[in-house]
């Protein structure tokens, strides 16, 4: 089971929910939490444990051998302007390269062999029974998608279906979010009950529908603004999975990098509710 936690708007509580839900579930099950918000990964700030693995993540980019007839086909082939011919040189701009391999494989003289280029670091941490994996984009790299995609490959290669896998997705509605949620079985959209929250939620819903995903909404800071988010979900028949109340204590714990569910009972109640609606519980409810 793979669950992606996403939101249109940033700062709605994605990381709070992802870290708490996965820590809570890991008390009874095998859980892997994966931070795919590679531009600003901060789930790690809430996870206490030991690093068990670390590796560079690379993408394959062409490198010019310096020896060719300068036919210029590579420049004509590249749709991203990552390779150009200037005078007697072939110049490459690796941060523009999408690693499609076309220039390299179609070069008649094999003068552009592929070489790995580091785009980020992947770290794995063991925190009790919870396994945490994060990837961090190198500053100056502009493309998050290849790093997200390779991080998911790492997860697929190391953890089988017996694990519950939780993705902390990047915010927004563009490519990185799609990459992060495209193979999820279920997506939780976190929002807050304000006009900004609602507007961005609608965009996120549009993305999920376009991707034909099963999804539900968690309202964070419930009670803060108005009822428009709840009315919208009702009208669109989108399930509201949990409502986390607007509680200053939560913001304070979050600020300090503490996990919230163990300290605030009302929050834990909402997590249990979420767990039941996702049918993740292993224990039958005693009600």
């Amino acid at each position: 089971m793979k669950i992606a936690i996403a939101s249109g708007k940033g700062g709605t509580g994605k990381t709070t929910l992802a870290t708490s839900l996965s820590s809570h579930l890991s008390e009874t099950q095998d859980v892997v939490l994966v931070d795919l918000d590679v531009e600003e990964p901060n789930s790690r700030l809430f996870i206490r444990g030991d690093q068990t693995h670390s590796q560079s993540i690379c993408k394959q980019v062409p490198e010019w051998t310096g020896d060719c007839s300068l036919c210029g086909q590579c420049q004509e082939i590249c749709n991203f302007n990552a390779v150009i011919k200037v005078g007697t040189q072939i110049m490459l701009f690796p941060e523009l390269c999408h690693s499609c391999r076309a220039c390299s494989e179609l070069c008649p003289e094999s003068a552009l062999p592929l070489k790995p280029r580091k785009i980020g670091m992947l770290n794995q941490i063991q925190a009790g029974n919870l396994i945490f994996v994060e990837s961090r984009l190198e500053i100056g790299e502009q493309q998050a998608v290849p790093l997200i995609s390779q991080t998911k490959d790492y997860i697929d290669n190391h953890f089988d279906e017996s694990y519950i896998i939780i993705y902390d997705s990047p915010p927004g509605t563009s490519c990185p979010v799609i990459e992060a949620s495209k193979d999820a079985d279920f997506v939780i959209l976190v929002t807050e009950p304000t006009p900004f929250g609602l507007y961005d939620l609608k965009l996120a819903v549009e993305v999920m529908r376009k991707m034909k995903k099963d999804f539900g909404v968690v309202v964070n800071r419930d009670g803060l603004g108005n009822n428009d988010v709840l009315d919208y979900c009702d009208m669109e028949t989108i399930p509201v999975l949990a409502r986390i109340s607007n509680d200053r204590r939560i913001a304070e714990l979050y600020a300090a990098g503490e996990l919230i569910f163990s300290t605030i009972p009302e929050f834990k109640e909402q997590l249990l509710l979420l767990e039941r609606s996702l049918e993740l519980s292993t224990v039958v409810d005693p009600v």
Binding site: F80, N81, A82, I84, K85, V86, G87, M91, F93, L96
Partner: peptide
Amino acid sequence: QQAHGAGPLTVQKII
């Protein structure tokens, strides 16, 4: 009109 990499292309043209 190019999404990315306009700088190098323009310089190439100037050269």
